[in-house]
Structure formats: C-alpha cells, structure tokens
Design a protein around this nucleic acid. Structure first.
Lengths: 359, 359
DNA sequence: GTGAAAGCGCTAACAA
DNA sequence: TTGTTAGCGCTTTCAC
C-alpha cells in the first residue's frame, strides 16, 4: 500500500543548505530579500530532499488553507447525472485552480451528512464555501453561518428575505448576514419563454415546474404566471428537475388538459422527458404542442428529437463568478481593506432564448 | 459574506470550565477516565462557546486527517456524465462516512492538474488516496508514490507487471510497491459475453473496445480474443467508453463488415450508442444483430431499446471495497501490527451475465 | 539580508 | 483522575 517514510521538514532542508529555517521558509514562499546564491542552495536542498511543506503546520500559523469547499445539497445520483452540476463545477474549478486553490467537494444527502459537513467547515479546513442547490428549510445555511465560513451561494437562498431560519448560534458571528449569491434571471427568462410561446399563437400553455422548494423553480413559476395572468391552474404540474419527473408531469398535464398546445418546462432534462411522453401520445412537436425548456444544457438540448428551444443561462460563468466573488471576499478580508473595493454583492445574470425546433 | 470572528480555543474552554486543557481535550475526544461532573462542565463550556477543534492543530500532532482523497484521471465532463463514477463514488462515500472520514474529490485533466494534485497529496491533507481511471503512462502513480500516500487503485494499474514507470523519486520510499487494487474480472466477463453470443449461433461477432490505454479495456479485448481465436481483425473497432465513441465504432464496423451478426461492446454507454446506429441502419436487434454490453449500469441498460443484455459488475461494491481496504491499511499502519492481519492485497470481483432483450 | 526565538492550537507523555 | 509540559512544523516579528 506504500510505506510512509517520515517527510523531511523545514529544519532538515535548512541543515542541508546550511541556512536557518527562516531563510528556507522565505525561499519556499517566494518572498524576496534573499540573496541569489542562498536561494540557489536552498532550492537544491529542497529538490534533493523532496521537501514539501506541511500544510497543517502552515495553516496553523497563517490561518489560510487555499482550499474552498463546494457544498451541494443533492444526492450523488443527481449530482452525477445532471449536467448542470458538471458545468457549474467546471466553472468553479477553473477559477479556483487559476488562483491556486483546491476544490473540496462535499455532498450532503441526509441529516447525518449535514452534521458532518458542519463539522468539516467549522473545523477550519477551508477558507470559504460555495453552496448550491439549497432547498427551503435547509439547515445548511444556519450550519454554515455558525461555522463562520465566508460563503457564496449558487442561486438565491430561500431565506434571503430576512433572517436566518433558526436564529443565531452561540458565540459566533454578529448581525444577520446578507447572503451573497449568483443567480440567473429565472423570472425574466421564464417570462421570455412563455411570451415566445404566446407569440407563436399558443393559448393553452402549460408549465412543468422544478422542485418548488428551490427558489429557481419558484421564480420560473412566477415568470410563467406573470404572462399567463389568469391561466387555468390545471395547466401547472409540479416536477422535480429530473427527466422522470418531467415525464410524470407531462402525463398528468395531458390527462388534465388534453387540449394544451404548448409546454414550458423549468429545465431541459424535464423538457426531454416531456418530449418522450408527447411522442408516445402521438402529439407532434411543435405542430401540435410547442415545447420550451430552460438551461440550454447542450448535451441535452441539442440531442432531443427535435432539438429543443430553450432559455439559455451561462452556467459555467455562474460557477466562475461564484468562485471569483468568494476569493475576492477572502482577499479583502486578508488585506483589511474593508470597503475599498466594496463588499462583494450578489449578481444576477441575464438569460437568452435559444430557438431550435420545438417552438 | 459572513465575518470571521476568532474561533474559541481549547484554552478558552478550559478556562471557562475551570479545568486544564488536557481534560478538555480528553472530553472532546471521548477518552474515558474523566469523572462525570467534570465531563458535564466541559461539555457545557464547549456548548456555550461553540467550540470546534482546530483540525490543523490536531493534525499537526496526530498526523491523522480523517480524510481520504479520491483521484479521478478524467475530465469533469466525463466524470459527471458517466454513471460509472457516480456509483463508484457512492460506494466509496458510504464506506468513508461510516468511518467518519471525509471524501476529498480531486479531478485531474491535464498536466498542470497533476502537479497540483501531487502537491496536495504530498502536502499531507489526507491519510490516503483512492485512485481510478488510470491511463497508460499516467504520471499519477509516480506522483502519488513520491508523495508517500497510502493508495488503493480502482482497476488494475497498467504498470503492475513490474516497476513504477519513471524510477523512484528522491528520498521517498523504499522498495517498489506492489499496488493494491480492486478490479472486476474483466477478461472472464468478456469471455462469458462472447461465449453467450457464440452460443446463440452467432459467428461474426464484433467487439467495440474501450479506451485501450486502460487495463479494463485491454482485458476485455483479451477476453474477446480468448474466445474468438482467429477472428477477423476487422471485427474489432476501438472506442473510448463514451456513447459517441460507441456510435463511431459501430458505423466503422458496419462499414467494414456488413455481415456481422453480433456486437460485444466494452461498456453499456457504447452499447447504447451502437444500438442507435444499428437502428439507423435498419438492423433489427437482436434478430439481425445481437448486442451485449458491460457494466450493467441500470439507468442505461434498462432504458435502451430494447433493454440491454450485459455483463454485470458491482461497481458500488468495488467502491466500498476500495475504501475498506484503504482504511484497513491505514489502521494497520497506525496500530503497528504490521503483518498481523496480513498486508491488504488486491481483490478481483466476479462478473455475471444479465440477460435482457438484445442477446 | 539573515538568524534566533516565539507561538499558532492541539495531543500525549509524564507527574502529581 | 487530573494537571504540567513538551513539542508537532511552520511563519513571522525582531535583533543582528
């Protein structure tokens, strides 16, 4: 299994190079003010001994970890099957590695996991956290808040309209924090989708919602209602952002309102499920029923039959932005220039309609 | 973004409870030998202060981290779209959390990432590593070896037949390590698949390989050849374990050998791709062409049309086993009982043929 | 420019 | 049973 020979320490390098620990530290950390020949000697000693700094020791004094946790409140099965997360993580990962930060992925399914994640964050393994796919009444924000870890949320948290859900923990933190988040203009995007369908002359426009305990789903529903002011409530069916959920919802809708002529699904995965059901029921798309999705997840939207018209949000950019916001906040923190660049605040990104063949 | 109030230390708790740091440490770590009333006082102080141990400080002295890295040598896009990884991670995750270990996921795409991962592992953030999806000539094993981190591989590493690829690093480690790995009986499973097809009376049996720089793909090809001793070499097309690769390979095969009557694909994803191409070309499955996959990835194998006959390997169990082997090894290490339970050694799991409709 | 020394927060001998 | 003490490996003043 590989043996664990004791790793060389700063001390060892210093001895070998014939200098003090302080000098080695300076060289290793790229501080200037060390004369060239010494630098060379130290470099060589480091090389020869295969020295790598012990991060625990370093963190103990610097209180930095150069690591950021990404917390996703979904079961593995979803995280690893919904391309949404892949894209978001890709964006985050790029930004973090560009700034030499490690990404630590934490998935939380159940209650036990929450406790574990809380301990991990509070244990000071990471400098900050990126949290997404929050659900209503999720204990996570409270936990994170108590852990005192700087955080940026992906998607507007459900409790942003006031206080944290369960009151503040002992000792930690002062005022109720204003959450910093990155989100798409879900409501606006939904409006655009539904208006597009209406512009096509459709009047019986149905909506398949996402999991309504997430703000993204609720916001898209609101957008739908903005346009369909007095819509038949039976035209709305609740989904859960999964293909299976989309199928179920579509069947339900077809059952309740056989005369529907359009469907706006809250994401592409559900739209794909809906398309399958429509085909099974002999409805032609877009002739009989027009369909619009949300996300523009390329591997999904381009592969459906026919290719999916959808609302595009730049997910990778959202990820990048989350990471950037967090790192900037950490920086600001470190350099004490509170308020110079201004406290980072939330960002809402615009969406665009991508026309393909389903509407 | 949340403020960072200084966290309370052991010292603070001790002061508040009116005991020594040692006692607090004992209580916090669940050591017995502390009298009940004191335990109570300490517990309360911990609670009141919201104390959480500083892991960096703890690791510095214990040299334990209760964290394990999972290293996957694939781009995010694949990791997050191939259910194989999801299942494996699920198994690993279950086993690790059962033993109170954190899972740290490290994805490595390119050369830069390798260096970063190497630094991370050598930096002593984790007690061990679980590595999979290794490719031939991957610098990872060498890096990990130099980092001196106990490791269990998922799938037999390509260099197991002798030494490490590039010679040993400076200072670290002694003898060439025998890699510990968990794998399926890829060759045996492939043989069974092909024999099954032969048993159906098929004679022009083609094979779509996986990425041949991975031992799993090479082993499955070997199994195919074991049965198809003097097969037409044109019956073998190279794929890459992705659906797109399966489609390409299938087209190639159809082009080269229009008379083929069966296909064994090295995984389900490629089999699904092959099925699509066969349908496009008007071949009926299994009447004209019988198809067998590998993996028995339920969300794939059961959803294909018709449902896929395939070689089942229990991926989640593989993951669990990898984690268990690693943890056991770490334990052994810690308790010095070298050799008592025997050094953990590799495991090869059996496969079974699952008959559905394609063969 | 370089080194000596203090101390980050914790655990683990060892004493009491 | 509890407290005292000595580091773990590193960074960082502060002298030289």
């Amino acid at each position: 299994m590989t043996e664990t020979a004791p790793r060389p320490t700063l001390e060892a390098v210093a001895a070998r190079a014939g200098v003090s620990r302080a000098t080695v530290s300076r060289v290793v950390n790229g501080a200037d003010g060390v004369r060239e020949p010494l630098v060379e000697r130290v470099r060589q000693a480091v090389e020869e001994l295969g020295y790598v700094p012990n991060q625990a020791a370093r963190s103990l004094v610097t209180k930095r970890h150069d690591a950021v946790a990404v917390v996703i409140a979904e079961p593995e099965t979803r995280v690893f099957s919904d391309p949404f997360f892949a894209q978001q993580l890709r964006g985050i990962s790029k930004e973090l590695t560009a700034h030499d930060n490690q990404l630590v992925l934490l998935l939380t399914e159940g209650r036990d996991d929450h406790a574990r994640v809380g301990r991990y964050l509070a244990g000071g393994h990471v400098d900050g956290a990126l949290v997404f796919s929050l659900h209503l009444d999720d204990p996570l924000p409270e936990l994170i808040h108590r852990a005192g870890v700087p955080t940026v949320f992906g998607g507007r948290p459900g409790w942003s309209d006031g206080l944290l859900p369960h009151g503040c923990g002992p000792g930690r933190a002062g005022a109720t924090p204003t959450p910093v988040y990155v989100d798409s203009d879900n409501r606006g995007g939904a409006r655009e989708a539904v208006r597009h369908l209406a512009g096509l002359g459709r009047t019986r426009i149905a909506h398949i919602t996402g999991a309504l305990d997430q703000t993204s789903a609720a916001d898209r529903l609101d957008g739908y209602r903005d346009v369909m002011v007095d819509a038949d409530p039976r035209l709305v069916a609740e989904g859960d952002f999964t293909p299976g959920g989309g199928e179920r919802a579509m069947r339900e809708l077809l059952d309740r309102c056989p005369d529907l002529d359009a469907v706006f699904a809250a994401n592409d995965l559900m739209a794909a499920g809906a398309l399958r059901v429509l085909r099974q029921h002999g409805r032609r798309v877009p002739d009989d029923v027009a369909v619009v999705g949300f996300d523009d997840m390329l591997p999904v939207a381009e592969q459906t039959d026919p290719p999916l018209t959808t609302v595009r949000q730049d997910i990778e950019t959202m990820g990048r932005l989350m990471a950037r916001l967090l790192l900037r906040g950490l920086d600001r923190h470190a350099t004490q220039e509170e308020g110079v660049g201004g406290t980072p605040s939330s960002v809402v990104l615009p969406t665009t309609l991508v026309r393909r063949a389903t509407a």
